[in-house]
Design a protein around this nucleic acid. Structure first.
Lengths: 236, 236
DNA sequence: CCAAAAGTGTTCCGTTTACACCCATGT
DNA sequence: ACATGGGTGTAAACGGAACACTTTTGG
């Protein structure tokens, strides 16, 4: 193959910030790194890009390896290329964030990498610049979720309005009036009410809802306002 | 240096989509590529990342080389890593978009690369996947400018309300009521009225304004609404 | 029967929209 | 004096925010 003369070549990595929601707080999935440097330390799920795969393919492959999950919401966030970010050798890393239904994942715990969920508020120190990646990922999902319905990716197929509200409240570390919240959410037409109720957290029970997938995909780019004054909350 | 064994290494590039505004339409700056492959074809301003510079430093350096400009608004957009995007050799490119005052630039035309401005509506074919980069960059600035005051970066230090409105109208390919536009813009407190007028486009003259830089930086993250129904316009 | 969570409606206020006329001035 | 572009105000509609009581039912 003809090649560019005199240019440097670097190792290319991808790192995935995997978010989940357990019904109370936002969590991220970490593994103990399997190789040097920093072997055994907690780290994001990452890996190197192979010669014949795109960055998207690499991140999808790594996510599948480590969680067993396919078809996950995955979005490229930012590429980190500081020359000294990896002490072993110059490595450029493209960070993706992923949003998964934590319960789907829990059925998959049979893997070699022993990933664990950590609350974003109580996380171990991470290697390299991964702390910065996680902070940026949190800002990214706060920003994006203020405008687009991505947080549904964190919920199971059927969910209740109180669950959805707790999710938004925990992502933005705020409280929302439930009357206004349900009005805003239902006004989008994104939700389809089911006849069954979830009785696990109250005697009366809360109706289950499904996402209207048609509208979800069709209006994904529209601006939402489930959250009052989002810009006051995004930068936290 | 200790290195990762068995991993592939790739050439890392940066490409800059440089936007300018000539008072009528949005333009981007292109050069004729100086080396093979595709030598002589129109292309974005790009270059390779050197061993001891970050991606930001590389893009800033390349922008400086090709336009002579420092202190330009520059934002990382997306990293393109398809294995076959560059036929010469696998190259991963991180694309940045830049917003510059086209008039500042015009004083700098004395350089070896002969860059030229093209209307985004009438552009030559670009090499590799750069067409896709430009389209994504247009979507990005439409998206970002619907919420944040980045378009001021395209204007000179002093500008008039009609100029600002034409800028927004051309970015979104729409028309806006001038009464409502000026109310919305002035309500942000971002503009400081000057005593002088611009008489170049009317007999009466239009007042010049300056940006209130304090507020500009302090409230940069706040959501604006200079444009009615932005999401209908972003995806064009 | 009571505690605990779910569900629902109204009023008020601020914001956005639609819309039209007068102003300044160079020719 | 008139053509050209610049500047401004108001009323109506809409959307967002604040706010409290009733319902259900397992224990």
């Amino acid at each position: 193959m003809i090649r560019y003369a005199n240019e440097s070549r670097f190792v290319q990595a991808v790192d995935c910030i995997v978010f989940g929601f357990d019904g109370e707080t936002l969590k991220i999935l970490l593994i103990q790194r399997g190789f040097e440097p920093e072997k055994g330390k907690w780290s994001l799920m990452g890996g190197f890009v192979k010669p014949n795969e795109s960055l998207e393919q690499a991140s999808t492959r790594i996510l599948k390896q480590l969680t067993g999950l396919d078809g996950v919401y995955l979005e490229q966030m930012h590429t980190f290329g500081d020359p000294s970010r990896d002490p072993m050798e110059r490595t450029i890393s493209t960070a993706y964030f992923a949003l998964i239904d934590i319960h789907k994942y829990e059925q998959q715990l049979n893997n070699d990498y022993h990933p664990e969920w950590f609350s974003v508020k109580r996380m171990p120190k991470l290697i390299f610049d991964q702390q910065e990646m996680v902070e940026m990922a949190q800002r990214s999902i706060r920003y994006k979720a203020a405008l687009h319905p991505i947080l549904f990716e964190l919920l199971p197929k059927r969910f209740t309005l109180p669950q959805l509200q707790i999710l938004y409240e925990s992502v933005y570390n705020t409280t929302i009036d439930k009357r206004n919240f349900s009005k805003r959410v239902l006004a989008t037409g994104l939700l389809i009410k089911q006849v069954e109720k979830d009785k696990s957290s109250s005697k009366r029970g809360a109706y289950y809802y499904h996402l209207n997938m048609q509208k979800y995909y069709a209006n994904f780019q529209s601006f939402l306002n489930f959250i009052p004054n989002p810009t006051n909350l995004i930068s936290q």
